[in-house]
Amino acid sequence: KFGRVHERAEGPAKILAIGTATPFHWVDQSSYPDYYFRVTNSDHLVDLKEKFRRICNRTMISKRHMFLTEEILQKNPNLCSHNEPSFDVRQDILVSEIPKLGKEAVLMAIDEWAQPKSKITHLVFCTRSGVDMPGADYQLIKLLGLSPSVQRVMMYQQGCFAGGTMLRLAKDLAENNKGARVLVVCAESSAIGFRGPSEDHPDNLIAQALFGDGAAALIIGSDPKMGLERPIFEIVTTAQTFVPNGDCHLALHLREMGLTFHCTKDVPPTIAKNVESCLIKAFEPLGISDWNSIFWILHPGGNAIVDQVESTLGLEPNKLQATRNILREYGNLSSACVLFILDEIRKKSGREGLKTSGDGLDLGVLLSFGPGLTIETVVLR
């Protein structure tokens, strides 16, 4: 008597548009150690500064975009301390800036989509910054002038794996609601975790050397309108798992001094060791076991992770080039990073006149991972 209210779509979910945005301000990685130790009044920690310089040199990052300028840091000195309470200051900045950054990426996506924004039916927003109620999803709806009846899902504090999570959720929403057009937004800022150095917490140096700011937005829907919408990728399958006891290797915690970062040297080999089982589960039903026969979007948690995944799986050097390019130009953008790589690989395919948006290949994989050593596996066509 009370059956399904919403009719299912006929076809699989497809990515119809991609937009990205970054803050205008950026830092050069080669000179960042001098800048970082100067603005945090830590130049007296000579040995720690040299250690940080070595870490920065190993990241293979060229530059990173950041909202925090020297002027902002001078006005808010607690942000430059390692342990002073600064959460309220971070909140005041990020509750406002995260939706604005997301808006810039959304406008780029809508411009490519070339359809009225009134056709957006759902919003899925993800960030690890600016936790608030009502959330960044609500603020973004107002900034864009979208209908208050847009169906919203707000996900805070997920971390680097969440780019894949957003695709998984959007696929379910698009395929189970005929005519749905799902706006996916990942907006991230390193301002939540920026803090001064400490000899007692070397993990913090890794975070300060890796993370950048950026937002990515996608429009996802099934059954694209012929002649009006141009699909870029099809989302074939999605899956999530985590490595048992992985939280002892990688975890982040909200504290009075901001978001703290805990990471062990076992993260790269542990991820590399567990990736292939995810690939087998995803691609065995499709008859694929040659990992060089697919295109790759791999989250660059750090250069060591990229190198070890490449080595463990025997990947050809060009397979992870898009990942390395984004890491070099932006650093680790947390949940937004794989979506930047997705954009990079389709643009490169277009520039080179390849037959598909995925490096000329039919199928590919998007792998994202993060806290708890959670792994998201997304098969794309």
Rank of each mutant, 00 (worst) to 15 (best):
E234Y: 01
V338L: 02
S349T: 03
L339S: 07
L363T: 15
F261R: 15
L373K: 15
V267S: 09
D307S: 09
S118H: 02
T22C: 08
I294M: 06
L143F: 10
I345N: 04
W113V: 04
Q321N: 01
W26Y: 03
G314M: 01
T264A: 11
Y138D: 13
S118A: 02
D88T: 13
S147V: 01
K1N: 09
L140A: 02
S30N: 04
V379I: 08
S42K: 11
F24R: 13
R230S: 11
R53W: 01
I375V: 10
L140P: 01
S289W: 05
A17R: 03
N76L: 07
E112K: 04
A13G: 02
L313R: 02
L48Q: 01
N332C: 02
L313A: 08
N245T: 04
L45Y: 15
E84P: 04
C278L: 13
S81E: 09
N245K: 00
S293P: 08
P231N: 04
L339N: 14
F233I: 03
L339P: 11
P116G: 05
S277R: 09
S30L: 07
I271L: 09
L286M: 06
T312A: 06
A272W: 13
S334L: 03
L45W: 06
Q321G: 03
L367Q: 14
S311M: 15
G301I: 05
P244V: 02
R381V: 00
V267A: 10
D28G: 03
C278Q: 13
A336H: 01
V379T: 12
D307V: 01
S86I: 01
T264E: 14
S293A: 03
S357A: 03
Q240G: 01
L48F: 08
V378S: 15
V243S: 10
W113D: 02
S334G: 14
V243R: 07
L250G: 06
R54I: 00
A13S: 06
S334V: 03
H25W: 12
G19Q: 11
L45E: 05
S147A: 03
F369C: 13
D137R: 06
L94W: 13
R255Q: 15
K348S: 00
K1E: 14
R255M: 09
I345E: 08
P85S: 11
T356S: 01
L143Y: 04
S334F: 01
Y138W: 12
G331P: 01
R4L: 14
G11D: 10
C126Y: 12
C248V: 10
T270F: 08
F261A: 14
N41L: 01
K14R: 05
T374Q: 11
V236A: 06
C56Y: 12
C248S: 15
P231Q: 14
I72Q: 01
C263K: 13
V106H: 06
P371M: 01
N274V: 14
I15N: 01
S357F: 10
L45K: 12
L298T: 00
R381F: 04
F2C: 14
I345V: 10
V236G: 07
M60K: 15
Q139Y: 02
P317H: 06
P12V: 02
K49C: 03
E50W: 13
G246R: 09
T374N: 14
N245F: 00
S31L: 04
I98K: 07
L228D: 02
L16Q: 00
P134K: 04
T237E: 12
F283C: 08
K142G: 06
V236H: 08
R381S: 01
F283A: 02
N274Q: 14
N303M: 08
N303S: 07
S30R: 09
K1F: 15
V275S: 09
V95P: 01
I235W: 04
K14C: 10
T238I: 03
L144R: 02
T238N: 03
H82M: 12
K49S: 02
D359W: 02
D359H: 09
A336W: 07
E344N: 01
I61K: 15
G350T: 13
V89N: 03
H6M: 12
D92M: 11
I93H: 10
A336Q: 04
V275D: 07
E7Y: 00
L252Q: 15
A114D: 11
R128C: 10
S62C: 03
A136R: 10
G350D: 10
I271F: 05
D290K: 06
F37Y: 07
Q308N: 06
M108T: 07
P33Y: 12
R328L: 07
C263E: 15
A304L: 04
R128L: 11
A322R: 02
L101P: 02
L73Y: 04
V27R: 01
A21N: 04
R8E: 06
G372D: 04
H253G: 11
S86A: 12
G302D: 11
G301M: 13
Q74R: 13
I326E: 02
D266M: 10
D266T: 10
T377N: 06
A114T: 10
Y330S: 06
I288C: 11
Y36C: 12
F52L: 08
P371F: 05
K142W: 03
N332D: 12
